[in-house]
């Protein structure tokens, strides 16, 4: 933690000076729009009822609750990916990658520090979004606290894990937008933020299972919508943790060579 906490503090200082409201409003607006549009569609098109097919695929007939949890998870995932995956390429763009790599500090605690800052910010954003959802009439049952905590930890590991190889890709190719948006599109399509992955063809569904956010979402919904005990959510939690840690291990392995590629590209004389 010798590097994580100073990095958390550094990122807070930078955020408060440079992006006091922009990221907060941007992330929050996405969540509020997702829930707001789902609410309008549910009442204007669906007549306030979800079809039987939805209940069978989603495991719940509470469409708005389903979308609200998905929107919260989406905000959380996007924020974490934006900060953790882009941490190194931001260092590169600001000219500090070399001074950071030059220090003996390890990458993992550094990225944990970046992730902690994203986590603290996104908790506030999610709370505000949930308040909006409740205000417009979405009813969220009291979650099972232990399962929710376990799902939250597993989701954090999952999103953090997938961000690290993404960071390596970004700095090695020197590009962030195409990389991050490709992941966001894949996540939006495959992971089940706003509709059950059961609607997807089998190959896409299996592809979605390769992203740990899919199982994290199932665990989060089990905790919040179904009041499931820890044992019921355990398979999804374990799958999510295993995938997240696997992505993390691959990412940490790739990060060193990716940094050298980025530094090499920075000048060869």
């Amino acid at each position: 933690m010798a590097t994580a906490l100073p990095t958390l503090r550094r990122n807070w200082l930078v955020t408060m000076r440079a992006y006091q409201w922009t990221y907060f409003v941007g992330t929050l607006a996405t969540g509020i729009l997702t829930v707001g549009l789902a609410y309008l569609a549910f009442h204007a098109i669906g007549g306030g009822r979800a079809g039987g097919g939805f209940a069978a695929a989603a495991g719940t007939a509470d469409y708005l609750g389903y979308v609200t949890v998905g929107a919260a998870a989406s905000m959380f995932s996007v924020r974490m990916v934006l900060w953790v995956a882009k941490a190194q390429i931001t260092e590169q763009r600001e000219g500090t990658l070399e001074s950071q790599v030059l220090a003996p500090a390890r990458r993992l605690p550094y990225l944990i520090g970046v992730g902690l800052q994203a986590l603290t910010t996104t908790v506030v954003e999610v709370v505000v979004m949930l308040a909006f959802a409740i205000m417009i009439g979405v009813r969220l049952p009291a979650p099972d606290p232990v399962t929710l905590l376990a799902a939250f930890v597993a989701a954090s590991v999952a999103v953090f894990g997938i961000s690290v190889p993404l960071s390596a890709i970004m700095i090695s190719v020197g590009e962030a937008h195409i990389t991050q948006n490709t992941l966001f599109v894949a996540m939006g399509l495959l992971c089940g933020f706003t509709f059950p992955p059961g609607y997807l063809p089998d190959p896409l569904r299996w592809l979605g299972e390769a992203l740990p956010i899919t199982s994290a979402l199932r665990a989060l919904r089990a905790a919040t919508l179904e009041h499931a005990p820890l044992s019921a959510a355990a398979p999804d939690l374990l799958l999510c943790l295993a995938l997240g840690l696997a992505y993390l291990a691959v990412g940490l392995r790739l990060l060193g060579p990716a940094e050298r590629i980025a530094i090499q590209r920075g000048g060869s004389a």
Partner: peptide, 29 residues
Amino acid sequence: INLIAGGERMVYARLTGRENLWYFGQLYD
């Protein structure tokens, strides 16, 4: 070791001078 390169980069623009040195001090333990 350490490296000092010309061209005024390698420090964080949105931190103060003292905060920069504090942060790098932490990275070097």
